[in-house]
Design a protein around this nucleic acid. Structure first.
Lengths: 344, 344
DNA sequence: CTGAAAGCGCTTACAG
DNA sequence: CTGAAAGCGCTTACAG
């Protein structure tokens, strides 16, 4: 076995034509059962594998999807939000189940997009994943649409968006958090996270939260909102800033769990106890949320369902079938960090 | 622009032969500067991208590496160790810098390997990454070697291993932890993690740790070692088990940070304080380690260097150049969870 | 520096 | 059910 076997080698060995080998391997019904077995035996004997490049070239599709993870540049580029890890896992699994391979690429906004995965036929379609400044790359999405590239993105589902988006119900999640905080007797909750249209997911969370507060007659104090992106250190700094402002607060809704974990540390550094002095709630329900001390109340997104939906929608687009944006439900997971009653 | 442009379209538009287009695009020096510019203009006008399938087929290589992440099956399959996330990030970056794409696949030991990425020419080589039962897949490594598949793996670097491995200095890391614990006055440290040849990385950490303890005259009590795999919940359970055994301990070396974080929670549930009652040290230095309460002492592995080395070694193998296994240094990051002096 | 031509390893109408 | 043949879109000796 000096060199890789080809379908011609198999054909010789099995005593059939190369075309028949190909048919048998692609599972065509037009192959005699006995012939198929002979071919199968030859395949195993030579440890033959169909050459994907040749196959893809001929079939004009790649059997591969590309996942582009984009995040705002961080000092340490190797950091990825654990929430995306979870999505990554479910997307990979969904791809595998559907017979597709997954190409992955981390994008920095500063760089040019590798959207040419699709153009160069390396992938049949792309999945876009990432927290990050949405408005900044909005025009790139338009370009993808113009080029008729197949893509789906995870993120806020809003009217007037290019292409298909799948996202969780951020607004509803924000509402659930605010309702819970009010039930816990909090009257001056703060929000840590960017609350602008540049970050539509955080913004929706904020809007849902503010909506409930207003209905409950709680005044929204601008001093109680501090920008933060989704990292622990950003959360830490945002909390420092909040404390420095001196506006009293009795609860914190962090726009993501990483922010919450950073905030928790800052609170601790300042001698503030969670939840006795400050009730704390995050978002994403990353695995660590259940293990920090105190355990962190958070909003669970169904990443398994999300991954499947992203892949299925993309495959629909690739087949030129209609596909629709969708919003997935979320679930508030109440834990120690926001339970004031339990902590006396 | 109804359909994707090919190099022939470019050739027509630029008034040259298709062969010249190809040469220009591959950066051949045998192309007149003026011709090159004309071709470049046509490429941009038609938004042309070289078809990778055709190119790869012709060139007999794919410009793609495959990353196989294997872990023991867990109840929630979407979990990935954050340490691997970090590796994933650095590997992706290293690939991108070197002009390679990265295919990724999660493997369960139960399933068959997708090692055919390489056989089917979808990838030129594969990178193996994962904590997991090493002995179980040892024969698969041998098979890869027999098939002359190019691969490198991240993990323990031991004599008599098939192929090229890159790993961190687990033994040395274990030594550093034990030395530190002894300095902190601990006399009965426990180890949480599998300490057998099935899990060579954990085992090396254990061996380094035990080595120093013995030299310091500390008796190694088998009751103070509990098996655990690298998840929070496994760490939690292991700690429960350790406490249940009733053998006194004053420190815990968790074989990974996830184990440590789970253990921390169990300690807290039992009213044991870290570090006052129990000094705690993890391994991997995942980002969260700096943010849990108290901050977690851990052993830092240089994932950036590791990712680069893995990719570079693999590329050497692909070029049929010799490549050698390597061990990377580690660094103990001392934080609050093990500082007894600081906590009075 | 450029073009004509062969060929990478498949898949799939077409004809039997 | 099977084979001969064309062709997917490139790359690269070969000849000028």
């Amino acid at each position: 076995m000096k060199v890789k076997a080809t379908s011609i080698d198999i054909a010789h060995l099995a005593g059939v034509s190369q075309a028949t080998v190909s048919r048998a391997l692609r599972g065509s019904p037009l192959v005699n059962e006995e012939t198929r077995r002979r071919i199968q035996a030859a395949v195993e004997q030579l440890n033959y594998k169909v050459d994907k490049n040749a196959s893809n070239l001929r079939r004009m599709h790649s059997g591969t999807l590309a996942l582009l993870l984009f995040e705002d540049p961080t000092p340490d580029e190797s950091r990825i939000n654990p929430f995306f890890l979870s999505m990554l896992g479910s997307i990979t699994r969904a791809c595998a189940q559907r017979g597709y391979d997954l190409l992955i690429s981390f994008q920095q906004f500063s760089h040019d997009w590798h959207a040419d995965f699709a153009d160069s036929n390396k992938a049949d379609g792309i999945i876009l994943l990432g927290y990050g400044d949405y408005l900044t790359h909005r025009d790139k999405l338009d370009k993808l649409v113009a080029q008729r590239t197949c893509f789906v993105r995870w993120g806020a589902v809003l009217p007037d968006q290019p292409g298909v988006s799948i996202g969780c119900d951020n607004f509803c999640g924000g509402q659930a958090v605010a309702t819970h905080l009010i039930e816990q007797g909090c009257r001056r909750p703060a929000f840590l996270g960017d609350a602008s249209s540049h970050y539509p997911e955080f913004f929706e969370r904020y809007r849902g939260y503010a909506d409930v507060l207003q209905q409950a007659g709680v005044v929204i104090d601008p001093a109680l909102q501090v920008n933060a992106e989704s990292t622990e250190s950003s959360g830490y700094e945002a909390m420092q800033e909040l404390i420095a402002r001196g506006a009293g607060f009795d609860a914190v809704f962090a726009a993501s769990d990483l922010i919450a974990i950073g905030a928790m540390r800052a609170l601790s550094d300042h001698g503030l106890r969670v939840p006795q002095d400050v009730a704390l709630v995050g978002f994403d329900d990353i695995p660590t949320a259940s293990f920090v001390n105190p355990t962190l109340t958070s909003v669970l997104q169904d990443t398994n369902r999300a991954g499947e939906l992203l892949v299925d929608c993309l495959l629909q687009l690739i087949r030129r079938e209609p596909a629709e944006s969708a919003i997935l439900p979320v679930k508030l997971m109440v834990r120690g960090s926001s339970l004031r009653a339990a902590s006396r």
